[in-house]
Amino acid sequence: MLSFVARRVLEMIPTVILLVLVVFILMQLVPGDPAMMVGDPRAARDPEVMERLREHWGLDKSLPVQFFTFLGKLVRGKLGRSYAMREPVVSIIAERIPVTLRLAFSAILFSAVFGMALGILSALNKGTMIDLFAMSGAVFGISMPNFWLGLMLIFLFGVILGILPTNGYGGGDIRHLILPMVTVGTAYMATITRTSRAAILDMLNKDYVRTARSKGLTERLVISKHVIRNALIPIITILGLQFGFLLTNTFVAEIIFSYPGLGSLMINSISRRDLPTLQGCILVAGLTFLILNLLIDVLYAYLDPRIRYD
């Protein structure tokens, strides 16, 4: 098992190098001069300031020099300084990661709990109105663009009912988390509902369930002990696979709700051409995906020994 993990980690290295290279090249391809973006975009530019800034940022150096400076900093765990904020990118990003993770994980929790409950409910009541209702709800949830859902939630809970804050982090106040969480989690929840319904229906037809029933176990015990536990495996797979999409969704929700996470940082640095910050965000997002994939692979190998020996 250990050698499997070691091999997978080693295999990650070329991917990381490729990621770094692609990110650096992408930054060169971004149209628009960062020095032009300093200041009010509507006011005229001062040539002296622009020249001074390019020098300050090292943009007057040749590309290979810029690349090796970037690489040299990277291996020392540095990502340079933000053009706009003038602070180390590492500390700016470090401040944002917990905010985004908090939103992402609460959205997972929300969607897992409600999604599984709905899925189980409709599987056990297959063909009834409950099933129909839950399944059409799930289709609706998947189809709905989440920025639109966010705005509708603001309208309903913020304007009409006036019971939930629609904006900001609120210093970590849990009430500020509710609407962004639902916005991010709804599509995810719909997927889980459908997956868990299918998984449970599948399990209900298995031989061991029939055995359990014929043994005289109560239906309640059959469902909780045999059906649900085994249905968890495909559900967890889906949870892991969809995590990447979930992160993308948090980015959108962060903008709508002025939630100060990685997503709003990234979008703002794009429009401001704050290249070091943008570079840092993309690297962090890319690494997150790589690590997640690694974790999922390891989890599979743990669950299914056949994979380890391939």
Binding site: L151, F155, V159, F257, S258
Partner: peptide, 18 residues
């Protein structure tokens, strides 16, 4: 100073006296 870049969210916040 509340940073609210989304026009719809601003309007909602104003209407709810936020």
């Amino acid at each position: 100073f509340k940073i609210m870049l989304e026009a719809g969210a601003r309007q909602a916040a104003f209407d709810s006296k936020g």
